[in-house]
Design a binder for these strands. Sequence first.
DNA 1: GTATCCATGTAACCAGTTACATGATTGC
DNA 2: GCAATCATGTAACTGGTTACATGGATAC
Lengths: 189, 189
Amino acid sequence: MPKINKTKYAILGVLSMNPGSGYDIKKFCDKGISYFWNENFGHIYPVLKQMEVEELITKIAEQNEGKPMRYVYSITPKGWEELTEWLMQPPENTPARLELLLKLTFAKNIPENNVIEQMEKIKQKHIQRLEQYEEMEKEFNSNEKTRLDRGYPYWLATLRYAIHDARFRIQWCEETIQNIREHQKMLNN
Amino acid sequence: MPKINKTKYAILGVLSMNPGSGYDIKKFCDKGISYFWNENFGHIYPVLKQMEVEELITKIAEQNEGKPMRYVYSITPKGWEELTEWLMQPPENTPARLELLLKLTFAKNIPENNVIEQMEKIKQKHIQRLEQYEEMEKEFNSNEKTRLDRGYPYWLATLRYAIHDARFRIQWCEETIQNIREHQKMLNN
DNA sequence: GTATCCATGTAACCAGTTACATGATTGC
DNA sequence: GCAATCATGTAACTGGTTACATGGATAC
């Protein structure tokens, strides 16, 4: 089977919540879900065009005074069908490619201290991420309205994933740094 | 900056351990590091060719009786240089695209039970993965020789990453399933 | 005045995937 | 007899990235 255009489903999903322009879709990705999903204009615009041809979405031109042209897309019944069908299907797991782990595999060819430094930086990055996510969680849970929304447990799930993820990475960084140091000592004796 | 061919570095890394053929490289990826790195023939062979032109590797033809032709590649000094330079650089983080989380974001459009079923299956998959990794860890640590290798803490790190990863996902699946159920009940009252 | 936001799009590029082609050997 | 392993490669394709082009409005 050929590789599937995931951008199409991301767009369908975003438009299922609200009609919007290509720009709006990009904004939603950047502001709302960038820690697990990313899109860029160079792909969004051509895919939108193609989806219109496939009748998954419809376009309406919007001209506000003094502002640039806006093309607002809405999802069609056919689009809804395609979206829900995709949602019901188990997610495809794309073959992993974790550059950090690949580097570690061959890391014995560079000085230990360089590796430790890199791991330390990565740990700091995840500590910052974790703080952000925990802040987001607080805000999210303090909002009464969101908790009554049918989507509540799903939004929460994505956030919790990010939190778990950041935590395990911090732990793993610490553990790994310690293991490198201990091994260093062992070999010196 | 343009996107960088990571396959090149994977090949350099594999050949830094032992000279080998394209087939050997693929085998190493599949057997040894497939849970965090994947390559396929359709990319390996052309990249090998290009790397030979760049003088990062050299080729020797090997003809064993009755067996198909083998082309064994070795890393050159220039290749070593490029490899270590890359290793010293902090890893690029490619923009995330986690299909599962994207689906959860829009999951309120399909029946809860479908989502729960999917999450249950994913949990089972990670339980199996975890068992495998823990088995691998035992074998790995029981081997005296590997512990004296300079690469020991790095190999261990990749394995420990996989273990941490599987564990957090199992936990997260359980948590999420429970949250969906509780929310379901709450809305029914 | 300068940076950011709003807004749309195209063209060139490339990394990586899939399918196809070939054929001997080994193990069950 | 059949599947898997060994072994190399090409061609077609496509999903996604980057760079380029344009230009007004708003906020500091």
